[in-house]
Design a protein around this nucleic acid. Sequence first.
DNA 1: CACATTAACGAAAGCGCTTTCGATACAGAG
DNA 2: CTCTGTATCGAAAGCGCTTTCGTTAATGTG
Lengths: 339, 339
Amino acid sequence: MITIYDLAKKTGFSSTTVSKALNNYPDVSQKTRQAILQTATEMGYLPNAHAQSLSTKKSWTIGVMFSEANEVGLKHPFFSAIIESFRKHAEKEGYDLILASRNLRSRDTSYLEHFLYRGVDGIVVISSDPKDEQVQEMINSNLPIVVIDMTNSNCSVVLSDDLSGGELAINYLHSLGHTKIAHIAGDATIHAGKERIQGYKKAMNKLRLPTPNEYLINGGLFSIEEGRQAMAKLLDLPDLPTAVFIAGDHMAIGAMEIAKSRGVKIPEDLSIIGYDDIEMASYVTPKLTTVRQDTDYLGVRAAQLLIKQMVQKKKIITEDIIPVQLIERESCGPLKKQK
Amino acid sequence: MITIYDLAKKTGFSSTTVSKALNNYPDVSQKTRQAILQTATEMGYLPNAHAQSLSTKKSWTIGVMFSEANEVGLKHPFFSAIIESFRKHAEKEGYDLILASRNLRSRDTSYLEHFLYRGVDGIVVISSDPKDEQVQEMINSNLPIVVIDMTNSNCSVVLSDDLSGGELAINYLHSLGHTKIAHIAGDATIHAGKERIQGYKKAMNKLRLPTPNEYLINGGLFSIEEGRQAMAKLLDLPDLPTAVFIAGDHMAIGAMEIAKSRGVKIPEDLSIIGYDDIEMASYVTPKLTTVRQDTDYLGVRAAQLLIKQMVQKKKIITEDIIPVQLIERESCGPLKKQK
DNA sequence: CACATTAACGAAAGCGCTTTCGATACAGAG
DNA sequence: CTCTGTATCGAAAGCGCTTTCGTTAATGTG
């Protein structure tokens, strides 16, 4: 490894001047700057991030944490899409992402401590669980932070406009003639779940449509399997709905599977609209009509917000609501004429 | 931030002794160790990773790089699954992952330089492109490295047994009675593409089945769209195959889409077997029969190999071939009786 | 020509930690 | 009682870099 001292020796200047030349300080002449830069590339000099961070107290890294509740981590298409977008934007600004865990070498600690140890400049967390203690702890620290997919009145959050998204879905279904509309919901302890339920209810009320309790089914944590179970429950009802709004694409896909297996045709017998617009939604049969979350924009928005806090060294408390969009495909159809 | 000097002052020992106590050196008495550890937790002491790395030349980080060829990065389900598995294993051993880019602050450099700058202890790269210069550069450096999904005779690689995978697919198809079997291949410049072609040919030859040129279609880089195009080409043939082995699930899904849209029934008219077993494979209609790559094991194996090199500070050149597995679902059926 | 500016550079301290090596004290050995 | 060995501790240098502040020389001003 070649250091600024090596450059100093080679060029005949002091390490101070070398450092300054490398960092564009004004008090070094053009000529010496050129000379130093030149031999730097000649000798293949690379700065040492650790030394730099130690000295400047800035590491140019951002810690990322996934809610571990759903145990899928990077594999979840929605999460990974957001992170990928976040990453691209953060990179442009010069930040690298570091994925840390709860355990520090053998000893286990909290995420916060781990990030503190790593000296990250900020944290991005993707979590839906508003009462995750790990997340709370980080929010209450004074590390710059942005959280995605949940609300919190103590930090910057960015999330989709799930209330409108719910309404959007219902209004669309209604525009197709449906009046008996059920909702397979995400757990109400989760913000996304709750908001979509609200959207459902709000739209239904505005349309003066009934929302019997049996039509509101808690699908839990958005998994395919839970979607299956929820749909099974729904299909056991004596009075079936003609359309159902499902709070997540994974659940919707599970639900469709069960529906089809029971001989109910989609969309002829039952219209289904999902939420998220994961890749798979375009390739199941029928193609899933859904409400798209703008993962790209969620990611860059989060990055912007975090970086802003880091540069102005000041916590920003805000809630960025990202619009969602209806994606019409094939899983919804007009209400069949009653015989 | 509280340092070992603070602990030293508080406990009355020197910073040296504090450091030793913290790091379990033998030459510090039980009593003082206890006292130091105690006040460390009392005062909320956390070590500073940068200082530690600077001093020890070990950062406990691993750099990860994705081939950028396919531009999907983390979003690709196959890649993200592997990384997730890698991550879990690496974490257990105390390593954090850092995702770096090609640009260092404004200036752009190579991945290698970026990782060198970051002082990672090792690199894991997931790339299919054997002639990616960035990857080559890293392999030729003396940073410990493991690469996933391609071969190289100069470093540790881990990849699926694609040759056997190809044979597996063909033999399965043959066992169903098929003899006219086509292959929509991945680009032969990519190892995975080439091996699967080899597997296809080898098995076909062994079975004494013909492999006309028209039956071997280059699907390119494994995308859904390329799958569509390849299948369209295939269906334009005068003499259609009754089964087709497709080198990737994404391509297979695109291919199925086109096939269905042209009225060819799967599996009645055409059997299709994919490769990878991404999540989506289980949820398209019909459910895709495929060859599963063991992403979990690919990940942990890569982690083990990399860590081994890091601890023994010695490059290991090896090729770890991970077995694949046939997953029977619904997209393959017995050969229809000829009329 | 005397003086105040400015430009260009370097010494040195400091960031938080590790690690070598020497110092001290006390035990037991002879 | 002297000597050797062991247990425990600390001084200090070093990791590679930044940044403050002082020094020197050159420039301009009147």
